[in-house]
Design a protein around this nucleic acid. Structure first.
Lengths: 338, 338
DNA sequence: CACGCCGTGTGTATCGATACACAGCTAGAA
DNA sequence: TTCTAGCTGTGTATCGATACACACGGCGTG
């Protein structure tokens, strides 16, 4: 920039203003600066230097408790991120995905991220990146929990929502199953019976499980009758495989409440493949009301992850106050329940 | 950092080394530094300052010619980005999506991005962000074209691939239709007949169209018989709607070659809804060989966008030489063609 | 005619860290 | 005993820009 200033016959400050505040310099000076820049091949102010001096970077950090590629594999995460991206685009701010891998170096990667704030996708209670995010002192929001270090949380009341959808899913059922996410970072595939389900480390899993359990026991049933099928990955393939296995077992489920539409759609495929009828033989519910759920006629719990993503971004960019009211949800009854 | 140095009774350099090169300082000094940092609430080296001095940021920029949220809406882009993300995660580098909106300010947003290199998702020949990317002087790669400003391109030979899949799609057909992407940034939905299709500004659209046209005319048919249905958005809904409309017309298509699996799956839905048979009444082909295509038994052109994304990332991070050989593709024949 | 405001250019200090070269010290080798 | 090498700590210069305050001339106003 100094060289450009010399070539244009002006001071460095004039060059700086020519780029950052077009109105601050005369048209003539601006033209001279542009010409000199062109001649010297100067590409404009160095972004890192500008960030240092201005104290703002122009990018919002997003932390997914999972490995980075997860952002594009999990449809729920993608919907959420689309909402974050909407706000970023409107504000002219970049969206930086922090390269988390599950390794011990993750907190350091958070600390090194060149961003103005953080949005943390729902993670486990003991995730060390939460401390790393809080330690940066930058504005931050956690999506759907956990509550920690005073970080604001954006999300719905998962437990209440789960109770509501559970009542619909389990109506008239005798052998209900919850098809859900991992309880902790182990991500082990397994089948648990009600009381054996300890407190899950993932708040979303915990709240939804508790809500679904409440729906079952609240109807006067025994907790041991409700099972929890833990799918290691949130996609239709895993939901289908686990459901198929359960349908072949003697204790065949007659209601499947899934924690996502993807798992539920997999369950529907398994039920169809087994030659059974939905909802008469097996009732199925999902979670999120995605487009695919609508097309499949799935009874589901509607929430807008996209809107929640946008709200997170607004808070993390300091454009809205933190800890706002819980987001909305509602039960959408379609044809997969009795 | 100076204050931490004073509190720990060491020089600033020692503090710096304590963070960036743990082996460079004695265990005792490191401990003193950590303690002082803890006491003062020092969160570690300021990322922007470190970036300025080191000349490296630790983040890879990704430019999508579309609005930002597109990254999470288009499944093709998502697969590609997953490949980029794989490399970023392995290298401990962040992934920054540059907030493009289609407005004139886009080039400036590229110039302001705090990144170490750029990956540009396939865009139109005249997209101004290509110049902006080249002007930064940072390492950059363009996915699938256009070739401009000497930027390396990673992708397959779209034209040859299109010819190959076209031969399969159009075998025995008399009223073929290409179901494809927009020709230019207008994104207008329309139906063109062969010769009316001007040179598309999107290289991918252009190459695939030319290849498919070659397949048709190469079999001795007249170019006017091949139509091009331009879908404004790459998703199943648009593919379904446009195909349904064509199926209702008197000149009912008997072969649909789609430029993506999503469009093809939509076409399959439309054919089924019309009570017609695949492949006897209508042959359908896709492009990409996504999971859904495999499940649907779709004949398609297999390429790995994920691998291409990884290759782009490696080149843009300077870990591999630019302009490598074209990526691989092959025709996967399943049940939706004669 | 004096005054103050506006538009425009400049100098200085600083944002917060790290590369580099060098100095002191200890220990093992010759 | 001397020399070299390795370990550890420090001072200086610099990365590239911008905030801020000030200076200067023109001009409208009372």
């Amino acid at each position: 920039m100094r060289e450009v200033a010399r070539a244009a016959g002006v001071s460095p400050m004039t060059v700086s203003y020519a780029y950052s505040r077009p109105g601050r310099v005369s048209a003539e000076a601006a033209a001279r600066v542009r010409a000199a820049a062109q001649a010297l091949g100067y590409p404009g102010p160095h972004p890192a230097a500008r960030s240092l001096r201005r104290g703002r970077v122009g990018s919002l950090g997003v932390v997914l408790g999972e490995r980075l590629g997860y952002a594009f594999d999990d449809p729920q995460a993608a919907r959420f991120l689309a909402g974050v991206a909407d706000v970023c685009a409107a504000e002219g701010v970049g969206l930086t995905l922090v390269p988390i891998t599950g390794a011990p170096s993750d907190p350091e990667r958070v600390a090194r991220a060149v961003v103005d704030g953080f949005v943390v996708w729902t993670t486990s209670d003991d995730d060390p990146v939460l401390d790393a995010v809080a330690d940066t002192g930058l504005p931050a929001v956690v999506h759907a929990g956990p509550h920690r270090r005073g970080l604001p949380v954006v999300g719905i009341d998962d437990r209440a929502a789960a109770t509501a959808i559970g009542r619909v899913a389990f109506a008239g059922a005798r052998r209900p199953v919850v098809l859900g996410f991992p309880l902790d970072r182990d991500r082990a595939r397994r089948l648990l019976t009600g009381p054996a389900v300890g407190p899950a480390r993932f708040p979303v899993t915990r709240h939804r499980w508790e809500g679904l359990r409440d729906a079952w026991t609240g109807a006067g049933h025994a907790p041991e009758e409700l099972r929890f099928a833990v799918c290691p990955v949130n996609d239709a393939g895993h939901g289908e495989a686990f459901t198929a296995e359960l349908l072949r077992s003697p204790h065949r489920p007659d209601a499947v409440a899934a924690m996502s539409d993807e798992l539920a759609l997999g369950a529907l495929r398994a039920v169809a493949a087994a030659g059974l009828d939905v909802p008469d033989d097996v009732a199925v519910t999902g979670w999120d009301d995605s487009d695919a759920a609508g097309r499949a006629g799935l009874t589901t719990l509607a929430q807008s992850l996209r809107r929640q993503g946008s709200r997170c971004a607004l808070v993390a960019l300091g454009l809205e106050p933190g800890d706002p009211a819980p987001d909305e949800w509602r039960v959408v009854v379609r044809g997969t329940t009795r």
